[in-house]
Write a protein that binds this DNA or RNA. Structure first.
Length: 277
DNA sequence: TATTCTCTAAAGTTTACGTCA
DNA sequence: GATGACGTAAACTTTAGAGAA
């Protein structure tokens, strides 16, 4: 059974495209103008001016924090535990990775505060994601600067975005397979019915004799020419003519029926921003 | 060639926040 | 207006694989 006649376009993800744009982070000129213009007046979404990201926290090469898991864990629950241990380095890094942690004058409030990204920030992130769903460190840094976010935030956003994309694709694939299944079930039902009818006809020979023989389509595997033949007669009716091949006998095989050949399945582009219900 | 280290993506989880009844 | 349920998104943790030393 040829279930996967034509796999959904995105069933196979190219998630391993390590550095699709290895070169320095660059936007297309036109979009650059747009995004940059609005970013000048960007709403940093409750980021106090004093908490502007200090990119010196990154290492000398401008690469994001040596171990993303370190920086991430520091800013979270672990920051509670470790900050209490008086680890100055970690505390410093924590303040790096989360520019907004000590906002609200919370002082000792170590619960993670969620920063809702502004429309403009989301828009630019989406735009960037449409072009490249992964970022190299330089690109991450540049984008972070542009958005006035920490590189870690950009990194997290891209991770989450990839996860959402995949989830969406999974849903689409699931729907596709469901419809394939439905079509096969229908086809099966139809064929069973046909078999029943044929059996019934066979039981009444008189009728059977007056019937035209069942017609089957066959195809030459070499030249792919179609041949219409009757199963009860050796005289073939071939519109294109049964083609003999110099290589050998005229092997014919039935044309596989593709139950979902006409399926009107349209795959949404994954990059389309998820519309909130 | 095997080992160690670093970095990052993916998968899964937690939690803050917004919305709606 | 207060509240709880619920969905979503940001942040986090763990794991695994790739590449370099």
């Amino acid at each position: 059974m040829n279930l996967m006649h034509k796999p959904p376009p995105q069933l196979v993800q190219n998630h391993n495209q390590k550095t699709p744009w290895n070169e320095m982070f660059q936007f297309p000129a036109e979009r650059n103008q747009d995004t940059r213009s609005f970013l000048r007046g960007i709403d940093v979404n409750r980021l106090p001016a004093s908490s502007t990201v200090d990119y010196n926290c990154e290492d000398e090469n401008g690469v994001s924090s040596p171990n993303s898991t370190i920086s991430s864990s520091i800013s979270g629950k672990r920051s509670e535990r470790e900050a209490n241990n008086g680890d100055e380095n970690d505390a410093e890094r924590a303040s790096c990775s989360r520019g907004s942690d000590d906002e609200d004058g919370g002082g000792g409030d170590t619960s993670r505060k969620k920063l809702r990204l502004s429309k403009e920030q989301s828009l630019l992130l989406e735009e960037t994601f449409k072009e490249h769903n992964t970022l190299n460190p330089k690109q991450k840094l540049a984008l972070a600067k542009q958005l006035n976010l920490s590189p870690r935030q950009v990194e997290v956003w891209f991770q989450n975005r990839r996860a959402r994309t995949k989830l969406k694709q999974t849903e689409v694939d699931c729907e596709y397979l469901k419809r394939c299944c439905e079509n096969l079930t229908d086809e099966n039902r139809r064929l069973q019915k046909e078999v029943q009818e044929l059996r019934a006809l066979k039981l009444s020979p008189q009728l059977y004799m007056h019937m035209n023989p069942p017609t089957t389509l066959t195809m030459c595997p070499s030249c792919e020419r179609v041949n219409v033949s009757s199963s009860s007669s050796s005289s073939m009716v071939a519109p294109t003519g049964p083609t003999r091949h110099p290589q050998g006998p005229n092997v014919q095989r039935p044309i596989p029926i593709n139950p979902w050949a006409t399926l009107p399945i349209h795959h949404r582009p994954l990059d389309a921003p998820a519309s909130r219900s």
